[in-house]
Design a protein around this nucleic acid. Sequence first.
DNA 1: TCCTGCGCTTGAAAGCTTTCAAGATTGAAC
DNA 2: GTTCAATCTTGAAAGCTTTCAAGCGCAGGA
Lengths: 359, 359
Amino acid sequence: MPNMKEIARLAKVSLGTVSHVLNNSAKVREPLRQRVLDVVASLNYQPNQLARGLRRDKTNIIGMIIPDITNPFFPAVVRGAEDAAFGSGYRLVLCNADNDPSKEIVYMNELKTYLPAGLIVIPSSDSEITLQADRFQRDGSVVVCIDRMPQHWKGDSVTVANEDGAMQATQHLVHLGHRRVATVTGPLHLAIAKARLAGFRMALKKGDLQVPADFVQESTFDSAGGYSAALRLLQMHPRPTAILAQNDVMAMGVLRAARELRLACPEDVSIFGFDGLEVTELLDPPLSSVVQPGYELGRLGVQTLIARVNDGARSVEHLVLPTELRLRASVAHPPLDTAPRKKRRIAPQLSPPSSAVSS
Amino acid sequence: MPNMKEIARLAKVSLGTVSHVLNNSAKVREPLRQRVLDVVASLNYQPNQLARGLRRDKTNIIGMIIPDITNPFFPAVVRGAEDAAFGSGYRLVLCNADNDPSKEIVYMNELKTYLPAGLIVIPSSDSEITLQADRFQRDGSVVVCIDRMPQHWKGDSVTVANEDGAMQATQHLVHLGHRRVATVTGPLHLAIAKARLAGFRMALKKGDLQVPADFVQESTFDSAGGYSAALRLLQMHPRPTAILAQNDVMAMGVLRAARELRLACPEDVSIFGFDGLEVTELLDPPLSSVVQPGYELGRLGVQTLIARVNDGARSVEHLVLPTELRLRASVAHPPLDTAPRKKRRIAPQLSPPSSAVSS
DNA sequence: TCCTGCGCTTGAAAGCTTTCAAGATTGAAC
DNA sequence: GTTCAATCTTGAAAGCTTTCAAGCGCAGGA
């Protein structure tokens, strides 16, 4: 591969001049400039980014740490991030941390040794990452948290109104007349699962409804998780008339469980998802969901990061992107026979654990 | 950040010794070794990968160029690649080339300046990339093509039996009795679309069926593409009784079109997808699909790449992973009234362009 | 005690770029 | 034609690691 020395030799200028031409770091008189550019073009020369990064103490790499690209919500985020990065001359190094804080930290430390321009992190849980990222920032590096802001995070962040989204969805269910509303959550040590659960609870509290403990089913963020949790929920007596799943993939699992139990959606049970994946529109029934602006999340994350790289002194940014309810056929009024109290007494169902279902 | 010089100073050894300890590049007597390791641990030192790469003329970065992470087939591939890479100490730089050969090349040239250990490429079309990758290889770099092998490609590759998969699926339809089988293809300048179309044609030829030109609808690899192509197909007279979509997302679009035209699947039209995405199981009806081993594709791609890095002389590898038919409710026998010739004559349908439908 | 040989350590060079201080050139003014 | 200032251009150093040749110390044999 050609290097600057060779360019300099062929263009009959010094090494320094070549550098100045390439970086516009000093005025170079036109004839020289042209000679250099000609040689560069003819050799198809591109500067060695390692040497450049080493000297400048910074590369144009942006490290991105996400939980798992296989989760269908993240590709859009990554794509948004990469588009924004590419447009500004940065490149993305992708790391799947599997929601494992220790893997997150391994990746962070590793990435640091590439002297990246900055890091975009989707943190899984609160404490560990904050500590590490703080230390990282103190080294002068730039870290932007997206999707979820850790509790004591002092740097930039771009997040989605998770709590609010879950609340709105739940409120919608309540307004439709549902009294027995359950939820299937992700692992509750994850920040995002906690936030959505908080929104869920808040909406029910506002509606003066109580939540039996077993109406909150903790599970994993995948279809199997939604499925098994829903099996438990839908076999209770009385069973919930609506279920908020904490993401769309889980909601699909819930749907499958309902189908297997011969419960119709939305006639017997309403199902609400979270994410707003495109495919949910094609399900049977089409799934209602809390839409998150994934692409924007990634795009604005990188945009914020670059802004911070260019101006370390700018004030800290905390963007919160709104969610949006996408209402489709999977959500409807609760079945008549379960709404008023009388009816339920008539129905000869065992209902041992959930005596305080509706208030 | 600490550097080797500092480690050397604190451990009271020379720079070279520190390097030898860290890389096991020479025997170092135990007491010295221990002193170095202690200092390394206490400072939490990690070698600067830029300097290391610069000196060694190679980093532990693997560049990965894919068409678009937003296409639901690719996340699994990327994940497979990353897991394999991470396990061997490599890191993945991800690039979305948008099926744009020129963007592919820009990325390749760019990546080269990071002195990556190698490149994993999912090439979109044949010619351009081959040329560039060949040149790249001649520089001593390692390039592995996955998912699709360009025509004149001489390096390693891991691919999926696209042609064969499409053929099997089509054959299955033919065996069920379908005579009017149509397909919705991706953009036919893409290698993968060509391959699947070839398999489709081959199966019909084997079954002595001819394909009217308008039964091959070229479109884009997304749901909207499948939808619009299917609208065209399903409004023909006589219309096809089965449609093979070249990927699952398109198949979902086809399904939507059928539903809108009040055609039942599979009673009026059978629909076959390609990819084997998990969500297709949850559609109504569950979608039959040609399953591609995405994760394996990525994993084996990186594995092959690393093997080549470690042994440039090993013989060239061309792995071809088999596809598998996943048969679900979306595929069934053709409607009775269209199968035997007689019936069709009776039906008062205009059939101008497709006179030679069944042979 | 001296020498030989082996094996561990060392210092310096190299890899490619950026940047800084210093040197060279140019143009204008006298 | 000189001189000064301003503007370009240059060479060298620095950034951090790996690697190679050379040096050192030690052990064993003479």
